[in-house]
Simulated assay, not measured.
Amino acid sequence: MRTLVVGATGFVGSRLVRALDEEGHDVVAFSRSADSESFPDGVEPFAGDLGDPESLEGLCDGVDVAYYLIHSLTSENFAELDRRYAARFREIAADAGVDRVVYLSGISGDETDLSPHLASRREVETVLAEGAFDLTVLRAAVIIGPESASFRIVDDLTDRLPVLVVPQWVRTPCQPIGVQDAIDYLTGLLRAAETRGETYDIGGPSVCSYESLLRMTAARKGRNIRILPVPVMTPKLSSHWLRFTTDVQYAIARPLAESMRHPVTVREDYDIQDVVPIDRTPIEAAIAASLAESSRQASR
Rank of each mutant, 00 (worst) to 15 (best):
R223Q: 14
V230C: 06
H262M: 15
I272H: 00
G222K: 12
H240G: 00
E268T: 13
L237F: 12
I183R: 01
T199C: 12
T234D: 11
G204R: 01
T172V: 15
I272E: 00
P231I: 14
T265N: 12
P231R: 14
I227L: 03
D184R: 15
L228G: 07
P235I: 14
T199I: 15
L256S: 02
I252Y: 01
D247V: 12
T245P: 02
Y210S: 05
K236R: 15
I183H: 03
R152W: 06
R160Y: 06
T245Q: 05
P176D: 06
T187S: 13
Q175V: 05
C208K: 06
D159I: 04
E198D: 14
R171K: 09
V248P: 03
E211V: 02
P162A: 07
E198F: 11
V232N: 09
G204F: 02
S206I: 05
P263T: 13
A192K: 02
F244H: 09
D181W: 05
W241N: 10
H240L: 13
Y185T: 02
G204C: 05
Y250A: 10
S206M: 06
V163N: 04
Y210I: 11
S209L: 04
L164T: 11
F244Y: 11
H262I: 14
L164K: 03
T246A: 02
L186I: 07
R152Y: 11
C174E: 09
V230K: 11
L256P: 02
V207R: 13
S206F: 02
S239N: 03
K236Y: 11
E258Q: 10
R261H: 15
W169C: 10
G188C: 09
D269Q: 12
T199H: 10
R191A: 13
L214E: 01
T245R: 09
I202H: 00
S206A: 14
E268Q: 09
Q168H: 13
V165C: 09
